[in-house]
Simulated assay, not measured.
Amino acid sequence: MADRTPHTRETTQQLKEDLRHLSQTVEELVSATADDSRNNIKELRERAEKRLNETRARLEARGERAYHDARDTVTQQADACDRYVHDNPWTSIGIGAAVGVVVGMLIGRR
């Protein structure tokens, strides 16, 4: 898990920078519309659209990566649990029974 922390920081930093660039471009677009200079507006609008599309693509890619990482982690945890149950069947039965007793006692109190 410790090896993911730098990746998470890097991703967060990149996201902040992407949003900062996008924000700057939108601010430039807003200030350019005050001039009402058609060429300037068109150029800034194209840049804003380009940055928006780039940011959207990066966010989608990061979302896909996060989904795959989470799916892989859950799969690994499920496999580890499955191995533990197969390696220690009586311990697993004991743990399940103990949890069942506790849940039964809690339900019975109501």
Rank of each mutant, 00 (worst) to 15 (best):
L44V: 07
D82E: 12
A66S: 09
T75N: 09
G63V: 02
K42W: 04
D35Y: 10
T75H: 06
A80C: 01
E60Y: 01
R62A: 04
A57I: 08
T75F: 03
A32M: 02
T55M: 02
R51H: 08
A80M: 08
R51Q: 10
D82K: 11
H68S: 15
E49S: 07
R65C: 10
V85M: 14
T33L: 07
K42T: 12
I41P: 05
D69C: 04
I41G: 07
L52A: 14
R38A: 12
I41F: 02
V85A: 11
T75G: 03
N40G: 02
Q76G: 11
C81S: 15
D36H: 15
A48R: 03
A32S: 09
Q77N: 07
Q76V: 02
R56W: 01
Y67S: 12
K42H: 09
L52V: 05
E27I: 01
A57Q: 13
E60A: 12
R51M: 11
V74T: 12
R58M: 04
H68L: 14
T73H: 13
E43S: 08
L29C: 03
A34K: 13
R62W: 09
T73N: 13
A48L: 00
E64G: 06
N53T: 08
R47E: 06
A34Y: 04
R56Y: 03
K50A: 13
Q77S: 10
R65K: 15
T73V: 09
L59R: 15
I41C: 04
A57Y: 02
C81F: 05
V74R: 04
A57R: 09
